[in-house]
Write a protein that binds this DNA or RNA. Structure first.
Lengths: 350, 350
DNA sequence: ATGAAAGCGCTAACAC
DNA sequence: GTGTTAGCGCTTTCAT
């Protein structure tokens, strides 16, 4: 940890001014080739590492993009597939947020941006997201991860792209995914192929994307003149709420024929809980999910679900952000990304 | 994107000096409670978002940790498990680096550090890693991702922790994993349980950790007085090289009884390639891997391998770094993390 | 307890 | 083509 080498040191060794050093790095074509070479040699000799803080301050931008997720998404959530399978020991599966993050990483790399993933500790009184926001030129946030107030505050300083189903705030971009059609297709399948009539729905209506799923489900039932169940509350990331929801269902006595869940994670938790009660899926009850995460496909039998283009969502978010940062006007997504029905076997298909 | 709100604005609205604003945030106990409150209200009203660049410049540290990986590790590498399984459509599995990254993320969060994942484009002439290094207080690098020269350059400015099998450079910490024992145990299993005598080894010796694997393998064979094969070259992340290695093996005519690979990824690619040639694993030839990634466990049959504590590796790296940053002396890892033999079925077990 | 002021390392006018 | 210089927004002595 020797003392820092700065532009001044490089300039001195190269026998030029600090401005020339700066130009040599950022606009080499504006500097005499020999001078550039001399600067590079000096920088190399000294082991010069430019300070991103200083550069960021001077330029007014950091060259980094931030990704803000719910805290719980970072936890080592244990979605164990099957307690007696060889798989059970691998407790980490890429969940929805992980796969989106991967897309974000890839696109950031392609676009030449650094990616900041939020630190958590807030040594001062500022909310966590503000800490992240202060470090980056633009922020990507999962739908629902930001309160409206924070969203507004952050968005007033840097462009924000939300990952979700609907535009929440005028001025902040949103990656649109048509959750509705995918869920409608899935419901249609349950109706037409399996002729189910007694449905239950596990989930929530807290964010636009969840509401879309519900709408895809409920309107399809209505169209088919099948009675629409109530939403049995279950919250993403909160497995306990899913377990409770299943208990509630079981307590009611009569079991539905099929349990439609609004995330794969809750579907998997529900399946495990049903099994704990001696019920087999899909023999005793069918179950479906939403997202298309790996864990669902690895379930035995594979989960019937709707796949979201997760990597694409992440990539698109970065693209939108970079376009705005590049001086473009508020980039608009051309068409919503689509979600697609993904048949498995938990619906009763074989 | 309104104009930035700065300390000056907050100070003015709160009717105090900028120094007081700063103190109110960073050392509230040194400021009169009423003043703190006034500052907070002002900050809130204006939507103040402190600039991490300015803070970093002034403080000399950024509060972020960097993670540096090989480029190829970011690619959407397609390790397809089984072309006709339900799984094949999920082409993204957490590979070694992903699982380590997860550990890094978790520990960064717990320790209150932001995580920087390297951007790639280098608009100037500086090597990519230098770009990353300039943004962070400490850097974690996968073994072999940094050239010795870069390692030295970066390490002279900020603490670096390498993820690997051996200390490369005095002064830079390394997360030690005992790859050797795990590989020796696996080899022992092949010897004692399956009584194999004709081995092939796919891999490389380019980094200490790979050399450890080779040593665990070869010394166990030597002890058992079994003839040690040559290393058939195959490079991690370069599936084509693995395919070529398998071809080379097949061209030689006589097939070995077992193919020991130095990563799971190459083992999976090898299995796919063998299958393409009409060979079944483990019936016609046994195959083993190393790492314990999810994809291996999901293979049919499950891959026999050695599991590395990947999340733990990531977490430990952050811990070591944070300890050093916290002013401690060069933190030393107490004991190497262990790798453990993980039986599957590709070795011939059922 | 609070304010004034000197930087932190770099960029970007502007002058030469 | 290169040098001078004035900030960028914040932290941090040092006074008061």
């Amino acid at each position: 940890m020797a003392q820092k080498v700065t532009v001044y040191d490089v300039a001195e060794l190269a026998g030029v001014s600090i401005a020339t050093v700066s130009f040599a790095f950022t606009r080499p074509e504006k500097v005499k080739p020999d001078t550039v070479r001399a600067v590079m040699v000096a920088a190399d000799t000294l082991g010069y590492v430019p300070s991103a803080s200083a550069r960021g301050l001077a330029r007014g931008r950091t060259g980094a993009i931030g990704l803000y997720a719910y805290d719980y998404l970072l936890d080592s959530s244990a979605v164990s597939i099957d307690d007696d399978s060889a798989v059970s020991s691998a407790r980490l599966f890429p969940l929805y947020a992980d796969e989106v993050q991967r897309g974000v990483q890839l696109e950031c790399r392609d676009r030449g941006y650094a990616l900041m993933i939020g630190g958590n500790r807030t040594p001062n009184h500022l909310p966590h997201v503000i800490e992240v926001a202060g470090r980056v030129d633009g922020l990507i946030a999962f739908a629902g991860a930001l309160s409206a107030a924070h969203l507004r505050q952050v968005a007033s300083r840097i462009p924000v792209v939300e990952l979700g189903g609907e535009v929440r705030e005028p001025g902040t971009a949103t990656v649109l995914v048509d959750n509705r059609q995918g869920m409608a297709d899935l419901t249609h399948h349950l109706l037409k192929t399996h002729h189910y009539k007694r449905f239950a729905y596990l989930g929530e209506l807290g964010t636009p994307e969840f509401r879309q799923r519900w709408e895809g489900f409920s309107t399809t039932l209505i169209d088919a003149e099948i009675s629409v169940p109530e939403v049995t509350p279950s919250h993403p990331g909160d497995d306990a709420s899913t377990v409770a929801a299943v208990e509630a269902l079981l307590d009611k006595g009569e079991l539905p024929e099929v349990l439609v869940c609004d995330t794969d994670q809750s579907a998997l938790v529900a399946i495990a809980e049903l099994k704990r009660h001696g019920l087999t899926v899909p023999r005793d009850i069918a179950v479906t999910g939403f997202d298309g995460i790996l864990a669902g496909q690895l379930n035995h039998p594979p989960l019937t679900t709707v796949r979201q283009p997760m990597e694409e969502i992440g990539r698109l978010a970065v693209s939108l952000l970079v376009d705005v940062l590049g001086g473009g006007k508020a980039a608009e997504q051309a068409d919503p990304l689509i979600s697609s029905f993904m048949p498995g076997q938990t619906c009763g298909c074989s």
